[in-house]
Design a protein around this nucleic acid. Structure first.
Length: 430
RNA sequence: GGGGAGGUUCCCGAGUGGUCAAAGGGGGCAGACUGUAAAUCUGUUGGCUACGCCUUCGAAGGUUCAAAUCCUUCUCUCCCCA
């Protein structure tokens, strides 16, 4: 099966320029994907692009990850993102280094293989490029008419557009197009890939290459990743799901994938794992037979968590999940060794309360001394509704008192609001 | 500039002197069911020292025993005409 066929099967192709498939079959191709260095970590919204590069390298082609140090300062007109702030160069470099470390888990940058991955930063060729030189060398090859025909631009010029579009945003496609041209010239990069909203920008690049370099370049986009319920992919109540364990704990990360809906699981297995056709079909049929076992979600979460974090972190996340969602009891909780206990609850909100404050009813403890509840009324209602547990034991009386016997390891109380919200209260001697 | 409509709790939206912490819906949260799902059903959705009290209906004043409701001024939004 050709690379493009496989990508098609995986649902990773939205649009592809004629000739791209043939090109990928006949020679080793260098291709790139752009990434904004707005943070020092990738989040799972970046994952499709990185997987794309990984599959490309896997098939023997050469991937380039382009860090958009320059373009990231502008923001394209397609939308959601307002114009960005200028990052200072130090931050930019730091971010780039962090991103490279993360991407190294997917791509081989190190070996001497001819298709080893490359990371570049367009800031390097844009920073000293003067405005005058740019409009003289690049700008004159593309007409404004051409630029205005792009959807992203048209939308902003239409009558229904609320805010206008700045000249800077308008120029975005040229800057991005020039990136492609530079990579074409210096690395024989003939293909740019991106999300479906990038099509217009990519094509501007191929156009520049055609006109200035007299060369052929290609474009490939992947579809927007969706969720079956229409929500935005990659977001939780707490925000983005990051690859950086400091921002999103491996446990939360694992949980994110584990909770994917049935409809999405198959789709995500195809996109985000290296599992082959047979393996995925096997999982799908197993799932159809026993949906409650959620083999698809489990495999998905395993594959990705191991890839991003490690086998150890994955094991830990599974163990934590068992404790939190399995039929854990008060007794089993008390038996856990302290280090595991703490690692399980690492990402959970914690409150520290001195022993002197413990001698009162739970209501006060939960609503006043800690922020578990916003008000006593809320706490009272929740307890009455059977929604609060302490150490896995349902709380029925808001006037109940906590005694030392209740502490886990002599100093922890595990509070549960509903099924999924955990809070850890740590008792401090005073 | 002239005329009209209107601003209600997270959102939409009822309420036009006491029975209003304010209908109904949505959303949120929780319970049951379940697969840590979906669907469904149920409860809950201003605060407190809680059979009572306090703060809330654009803002400020006023009338009244009593105001989201009546009056005055201000303010913002929308629509129509010029």
């Amino acid at each position: 099966m050709s690379l493009v066929d496989e990508l098609r099967w995986r649902g990773m192709i939205h649009d592809i320029m004629p000739g791209t498939e043939e090109l990928l079959e006949k020679e080793q191709v260098t291709a790139y994907v752009g990434i904004d260095p707005t943070a020092d970590s990738l989040h799972i919204g970046h994952l499709v692009g990185v997987m794309m590069l990984k599959r490309l390298q896997h098939a023997g082609h050469r991937p380039i990850a382009l860090v958009g140090g320059a373009t990231g300062m502008i923001g394209d007109p397609s939308g959601k993102s307002q114009e960005r702030n200028l990052l200072d160069e130090t931050t930019l470099r730091q971010n780039q280094e962090s991103l490279k470390k993360q991407i190294s888990k997917f791509l081989d940058f190190e070996t001497g293989a001819p298709n080893r991955a490359l990371m570049v930063n367009n800031y390097d060729w844009m920073k000293d490029y003067t405005f005058l030189a740019f409009i003289r060398d690049i700008g004159k090859h593309i007409t404004v008419n051409y630029m205005m025909a792009k959807d992203s631009v048209k939308k902003r010029l239409g009558a229904d557009s609320k805010s206008g579009m700045s000249f800077t945003e308008f120029t975005y496609q040229l800057v991005q197009g020039y990136d492609f041209q530079v990579l074409y010239r210096e690395h024989h990069c003939k293909l740019q890939m991106g999300g479906s909203d990038q099509w217009g920008n990519i094509v501007t690049g191929t156009e520049l290459i055609r006109r200035i370099e007299k060369g052929e370049a290609y474009a490939l986009t992947w579809p927007l990743i969706t969720k079956s319920d229409g929500g935005k992919f990659g977001k939780t109540e707490e925000g983005n799901v990051w690859l950086d364990p400091e921002r999103t704990s491996p446990y939360k990360f694992y949980q994110f994938w584990l909770n994917v809906s049935d409809e999405d699981a198959e789709k995500y297995l195809k996109i985000f794992t290296m599992l082959g056709r047979e393996a995925i079909q096997q999982l799908v049929s197993e799932h159809t037979e026993a949906p409650h076992k959620r083999v698809m979600q489990k495999k998905l979460a395993e594959e990705i968590t191991v890839l991003i974090h490690s086998r150890e972190e994955y094991d830990m996340a599974v163990e934590a999940s068992d404790i939190l969602f399995g039929r854990g009891t008060r007794e089993s909780l008390k038996k856990i060794r302290e280090e595991l206990f703490l690692s399980v609850f690492e990402g959970v909100p914690q409150y520290e309360v001195p022993t002197s404050r413990m001698d009162k009813d739970v209501l006060e403890l939960l609503a006043v001394d800690t922020g578990v509840f916003a008000s006593k009324g809320e706490a009272r209602r929740m307890i009455a509704g059977g929604g609060v547990s302490i150490n896995k034991q349902k709380l029925s009386d808001p006037g109940q008192r906590i005694t030392e016997k209740d502490f886990i390891n002599n100093r922890y109380l595990l509070v549960q609001k509903g099924k999924k919200n955990y809070y850890l209260i740590r008792v401090r001697e005073s």
